[in-house]
Design a protein around this nucleic acid. Structure first.
Lengths: 189, 189
DNA sequence: GAATTAATAGCACGATCGTTCGTTCGATCG
DNA sequence: CGATCGAACGAACGATCGTGCTATTAATTC
């Protein structure tokens, strides 16, 4: 890996956290550079434009989410078990704050759902893929309405995130887990 | 009502929509003024600072939400009926886009959950009050876990909003309604 | 209708935004 | 060693941000 690639990765690592706190628009090149003790122009050279930086940040966030939630469950058999694994990992990472400023996707979704363009498409792609993967496992588990279950799991996760971050109420996670358990087919441990 | 009050109201009417699209930070005084064909300073004079404008906008959004969701249900008897009314109104207004840029509260929550200060407190106050009111009616209806039900209703609404706005998938609302009906005690009418 | 007050406009400020340019430093290679 | 090249820097650009001032218009009161 060349030096440029290493620097770029370090930038994006920081950028995902900063964007989760300040939003993808609040993700300022000047601020990002100063926090990384780099010059604005030196940092900017790694990306041709702010939009490219945003796109790369979304990609990096998707990568981090994949490694924290999806990857550890790939060894589980498809269907109910992997679905359960997803749910546990999903809520755990939300609770443990995988991103410094709360769920990156909740912030990015709300911020860009009205701004057409490639950034919005990338966010929608990642969120949609996650829900489809949930639905795929639900279908393999024989659930009657897989997409509906995937929707509910996603919504409860976002709700728990809001409860924690905005209302300082950690009980949202217990409530989300309870609602999911109630909904799942009697789970195997 | 003096002229100033009327102008202020018109500004805030527009500001809530603009903020729902661009966020409370993206709610720029210059842009707001130009869209209203006012001078920046003329508009600014109605609020002492941008933070005051944001606070007033949050207040105006709360007022709009109250009139669209809470007010029409005040004639219903407390308990299950009013709770059902709330749910219908809540999802209907989300679906019909009470705010031009999707749910104001979803956007504001995600944007400010990491920024301590009076604006965040105002948002948290409004969101918390809505959930507590839902829980109050659930308790009056004899639900076993009123706060848990209120949490689920809120989360499903936000999820449906995201599905509609980000994923262009209107089915989120049907799924939210179905999940709520499944959860409610056999509803009257 | 004149005087007074309230509401809006015009202008300027420092700061910061994204972006571009020319330069310098450090490593790599012949 | 000297030549080359990629990475980072520093300065500057036009634009826009929030926020003060001062003037000018509009509304209200006598």
């Amino acid at each position: 890996m060349g030096k440029a690639q290493a620097t770029r990765s370090a930038i994006l690592e920081h950028a995902t956290d900063l964007a989760s706190r300040e939003g993808l628009e609040g993700l300022t090149i000047g601020r990002l550079a100063s926090e990384l003790k780099m010059s604005k122009s030196g940092l900017f050279a790694h990306f041709g434009s702010k939009q490219d930086l945003q796109m790369a940040t979304v990609e990096a966030a998707a990568q981090r989410f994949y490694e924290a939630v999806l990857a550890p469950c790939q060894s589980l058999p498809e269907g109910g078990e992997r679905l359960c694994g997803y749910c546990e990992r999903y809520l755990d990472t939300l609770q443990q704050e995988l991103f410094a400023g709360g769920c990156f996707w909740a912030a990015a979704s709300a911020e860009f759902d009205d701004k057409p363009g490639p950034v919005r498409d990338a966010i929608a792609g990642a969120v949609g893929a996650w829900q489809r993967e949930l639905a795929r496992q639900a279908a393999a588990a024989g659930v009657e309405d897989p997409a509906g279950l995937a929707f509910e799991i996603y919504a409860l996760g976002i709700g728990a995130n809001t409860a924690l971050r905005l209302l300082n109420d950690e009980r949202g996670f217990a409530r989300a887990r309870q609602a999911i358990e109630r909904r799942l087919p009697s789970p195997a441990a």
